[in-house]
Amino acid sequence: MSRFKLYQEEFHPSPLQHTWLEFKENHLAVGGLCCFMFFLFIILLCPIFAPFDPLMQKTDAILIPPAWEANGGIVNVFGTDALGRDLLSRVMYGCRMTFGISIILVLVAMFVGVTLGAVAGMSRGVRSSVMNHILDSMMAIPTLLIAIIIIAILGTGLINSMWAIALALIPQFIHQTRDFVRQERKKEYVMAAKLDGATPFQLVTRSILPNMGEILVVQGALALSISILDISALGFLNLGAQAPSPELGTMLSEGIEVAYIAPWSIALPGGAIFLMMLSINLVGDGLRSALRSRLIH
């Protein structure tokens, strides 16, 4: 067989490379990605880089201001809190707890939600509509409220709040996936795949899922920011992570007591939450438009 290449210099990017080529056109999103990578870096490597143990209390160094204040010291760069714990280490471990747990929760919720949603989308009749209506009625309630209800049943604690948030996030993924699968199932390319002899499972994984990236990114970014806010809100309300553990919401509620003497003890964890949310939304938005324009240009 004759094999010739007409355009020697032509290069065919993989879907991932293609998305990156589109993504890096959006400078704001690249900035967000840098911030996101910075947080990922921290949550992976905080045992190495954190200067102190986040739970270690130094009674002789209580409420030391951050290094940039006139009477701050370089030993505790972000200062210390009311119990003499180093705030920099606590914020780093707090990012690990809040952000890391959120990422895991969203991945779990996405996997479960997409699986159930695909099943619901491919099935017909009573089974599909029962699933649809029960879950849609759950979506009318805010996730934080669902999480509080679940915690009221299970009891407080970080593990219980993780369960609660994961369960509260799943219906949204199911709803989005189900809608998308139902809408795509009628299109001719799925019919063509069916004529190739594809089973329903192969139809979903091979034909429909490659087109779902945009929806998953939008919903994933939304779910990630919801879950960060919910974990810290539950921590703040003393329903989630409990007092000594370095969780950003818990740190905020502890810092409230000394807010007038030591404003940095709430400003720094709050700023970390703000930066996380900002970077997630920038990356999510940029990724969505990159995925969309990948299939236009």
Binding site: A193, Q202, P210
Partner: peptide, 28 residues
């Protein structure tokens, strides 16, 4: 084998043409 009325609709937008053509071979 069938050729659909609207060839635009009958090709999967998310995968390459190679992937589209690979599918019948892989399955059959």
């Amino acid at each position: 084998r069938m050729i659909f009325q609207n060839s635009n609709e009958s090709l999967n937008p998310g995968i390459t043409l190679g992937g589209i053509l690979d599918e019948p071979l892989r399955l059959n």
